[in-house]
Amino acid sequence: MDQEIINQLGDELYAAFRSRSTIKPFTERDLDITLEQAYQIQQRFIARRLEAGETEVGKKIGVTSKPVQQFLGVYQPDFGILTSAMQISTDNVIDLDGLIQPKAEAELAFVLKEDLNGPGITAMDVIRATDYVVPCFEIVDSRITDWKIRIEDTVADNASCGVFVLGDVKGDPRKLDLTLAGMVLHKNGELYSTSVGAAVQGSPANAVAWLANTLGELGIPFKAGEVILSGSQSELVAVQHGDELECNVGGLGRCKVRFSGRSAV
């Protein structure tokens, strides 16, 4: 697969993103796409968004839990780029009109106060370099028809990132048990699911260290101030107009979001 085709596929994803439509999975076409090429397509997709005026604000880690890894048949996480346009801050209301086929995930975000240059980064380095952790919702979305993704499809599609909301409570990771902190998710006032930090690669800090090292191999550092979404601790939650979600993390606190409008699918 040459650069021209990679650019074409990245542009196709960008066009789908812009028009809120979906495209046929790359893995169902006669492309023989590799994981490395999938990340190159992702780069092109994001480059188009940055050209249009968005700025890079951090990274997201996906495919961190055992059930999702088993579903996709891959036994390591993936990552995507977070941009300024993905961060929702207006009263924590998520406008579904801008999304295609969204699903919500509850997780922990790390906000860095120091650069992290992998490889060679451990979970202890991650805690040292973290300004604060915060409960958050990531709303994943797929530009691939019916979420029929294999790992190469979701990687090319920026790890299926949609938008994200950070909660208001900031926690010092030195004072928290990130591994054993419970995660309680309510949907419309009813208990939806519970989990713990250990669901993410044994501990969310492990997932962040994994990404620091993976990016380090590619010569990309984590920069101070970046937001790193460490991976879902909940099942995927289908959402529609009027739904309210709240996640509550033991020792840390809550993040609430409300959904309005109508997604494309």
Partner: peptide, 27 residues
């Protein structure tokens, strides 16, 4: 304590086999 958000992990022979938070028990 905030009992509902207490997390728990059950390990068998060094492997995590079950996890949850105490709210799973009747909120």
């Amino acid at each position: 304590l905030d009992l509902p958000t207490i997390g728990a992990v059950l390990e068998k022979n060094g492997e995590i086999v079950e996890m949850g938070a105490a709210a799973a028990v009747m909120e």
